[in-house]
């Protein structure tokens, strides 16, 4: 769910404002318990999402799984309490999630990470090191396709031995090879003099 090329008015709002508003509105939604109020709010959130010209294809999978969960919740709530209660609960959740999607899909990944870093910046006084965090996050993204490749290789090799569905035979080599990759990368970083110590003691 990345705001690839969103240029709507929502994309120009500062991420901090969007995130803060989302938080406040989500808490506010819990104070409302009548569907007469929630239904217009739900329609508003849908309009908000559509007016932001988001790529609806990106929303298909998340909305599908959300709808499945909410369907179950709706039936259970209706059986346990009453219909009105179930409608209120499902409407509230849908409104909240649509607003959250609107924020996510109009904020670039970089801007979102930057916001998180700002929120977490007080941690610096507890010994967290921003350079180290940035290195960790970017390395994670870089390692994902590599580890996926390793996993598929290991699985194929074990399939050839008739062990493709044996979770142990796949996981152990995967973990060992991941640790090897980690060791090699750490050595390479050290060999190139990468120094992320916050300050010299």
């Amino acid at each position: 769910m990345i705001a690839a090329k969103n240029t709507s008015y929502l994309a120009r709002v500062k991420p901090g404002w969007k995130f803060g508003t989302l938080l406040v509105l989500s808490i506010g939604l819990y104070l409302i318990s009548s569907w007469q109020v929630l239904l217009p709010l739900f329609i508003l959130s849908a309009i908000l999402l559509l007016s932001a010209r988001v790529d609806l294809k990106q929303l298909r999978m998340p909305l599908f799984s959300l709808a499945m969960i909410l369907g179950i919740v709706f039936i259970l709530l209706a059986l346990q309490t009453d219909w009105a209660n179930a409608v209120v609960s499902v409407l509230r959740l849908l409104t909240m999630c649509l607003m959250a999607y609107a924020v996510s899909l109009t904020t670039s990944f970089d801007a979102m990470l930057e916001l998180f870093q700002q929120v977490a910046s007080p941690l610096r006084f507890l010994g967290a090191n921003p350079a180290q965090i940035a290195l960790g996050l970017s390395m994670t993204i870089r390692f994902i396709p590599e580890l996926k490749k390793v996993y598929l290789e290991v699985r194929e090799a074990q399939h050839a031995r008739g062990l493709g569905n044996n979770p142990l035979a796949v996981s152990v080599p995967l973990v060992i090879r991941s640790l090897k990759i980690a060791d090699e990368t750490a050595e390479a970083l050290d060999a190139r003099g990468y120094d992320s110590a916050p300050y010299r003691r």
């Binding site: 769910m1 995130f19 989302l22 989500s26 998340p62 959300l66 969960i69 909410l70 919740v73 959740l93 909240m96 999630c97 607003m99 959250a100 999607y101 924020v103 996510s104 899909l105």
Partner: peptide, 8 residues
């Protein structure tokens, strides 16, 4: 995305 956090 943020919808995961706000979802059930």
């Amino acid at each position: 995305g943020l919808g995961v956090l706000f979802g059930p």
